[in-house]
Simulated scan of single mutants.
Amino acid sequence: MVLALGKIDAIPSEAEIIGVDLVDFFAGPPCPPRLRLITASVTAWVPEGAFDLITSVHGLHYVGDKLGVIAGAAGRLTEDGLFVANFDARSVRREDGAPAGASLTRALRVAGLDYDARAKRIRSYGRREVRLPYSYVGADDGSGPNYTGQPAVDSHYERCSC
């Protein structure tokens, strides 16, 4: 179920919205009904059930294992669900620090993901098991600003046959 709503009161009674915050920024009054806010590491959090819609607006910029989060999100969709996120493939680096480059974007597309380099957006339609030929080795939080001008994290991977 994909909803375009002006007010949270318009959400159908069977719908629930779950927000995951990486740094416990959710503060203030109690949540409206059907809205659940969770502070968790997006790389470690394992939700129950499947989701109709998963979005990340500029959240992946600050995550170490970006490819792991993308694969996890695609695997947590309903059969006709949608995952869409801002994602700059230039922030994915080989173990030696060089950009993963065209081999990464090819691997994303082979895995069934839609990557738009110009818009810096990645999408997955429907649940899928995403296997990418990369193994996460660490992140660099001192890589400087990304295309948004904000400090971001580069993610480092070794190419593997996994």
Score class of each variant (00 low, 15 high):
residue 67 L to W: 02
residue 143 S to R: 10
residue 114 D to H: 12
residue 63 V to L: 09
residue 127 R to S: 12
residue 92 V to L: 12
residue 130 V to I: 13
residue 135 S to I: 08
residue 112 G to C: 09
residue 98 A to F: 01
residue 78 T to L: 00
residue 111 A to D: 07
residue 97 G to R: 13
residue 140 D to H: 10
residue 89 A to S: 11
residue 55 T to F: 00
residue 100 A to C: 09
residue 49 G to A: 05
residue 66 K to G: 06
residue 49 G to P: 07
residue 70 I to Q: 03
residue 137 V to T: 13
residue 143 S to V: 14
residue 98 A to C: 07
residue 65 D to F: 06
residue 138 G to S: 14
residue 83 F to Y: 14
residue 147 Y to R: 15
residue 128 R to Y: 00
residue 79 E to I: 01
residue 54 I to G: 02
residue 70 I to G: 01
residue 59 G to F: 05
residue 47 P to N: 00
residue 145 P to D: 01
residue 93 R to M: 03
residue 128 R to A: 14
residue 85 A to K: 11
residue 101 G to N: 10
residue 122 I to S: 04
residue 67 L to M: 11
residue 102 A to F: 03
residue 63 V to Y: 09
residue 131 R to S: 15
residue 113 L to E: 10
residue 69 V to Y: 02
residue 123 R to W: 05
residue 69 V to W: 02
residue 95 E to W: 03
residue 102 A to H: 05
residue 91 S to R: 15
residue 128 R to M: 10
residue 119 A to L: 14
residue 83 F to H: 03
residue 80 D to K: 13
residue 122 I to F: 01
residue 125 Y to F: 05
residue 64 G to E: 12
residue 54 I to T: 11
residue 100 A to D: 09
residue 151 P to W: 01
residue 117 A to W: 00
residue 150 Q to H: 15
residue 49 G to K: 11
residue 73 A to F: 09
residue 125 Y to S: 09
residue 63 V to S: 04
residue 79 E to C: 02
residue 133 P to I: 03
residue 129 E to L: 08
residue 61 H to K: 11
residue 114 D to I: 06
residue 67 L to H: 04
residue 74 A to I: 13
residue 138 G to L: 14
residue 148 T to I: 05
residue 86 N to L: 10
residue 73 A to K: 02
residue 130 V to R: 00
residue 75 G to V: 04
residue 128 R to W: 04
residue 59 G to L: 13
residue 126 G to P: 04
residue 91 S to K: 13
residue 107 A to E: 07
residue 78 T to Q: 05
residue 77 L to W: 05
residue 147 Y to H: 04
residue 128 R to D: 01
residue 85 A to E: 10
residue 57 V to E: 14
residue 94 R to W: 02
residue 105 T to K: 09
residue 118 R to N: 10
residue 112 G to L: 07
residue 151 P to A: 10
residue 71 A to D: 12
residue 147 Y to Q: 10
residue 99 P to V: 06
residue 127 R to G: 03
residue 133 P to G: 04
residue 96 D to H: 03
residue 59 G to P: 07
residue 53 L to W: 08
residue 149 G to P: 04
residue 80 D to E: 06
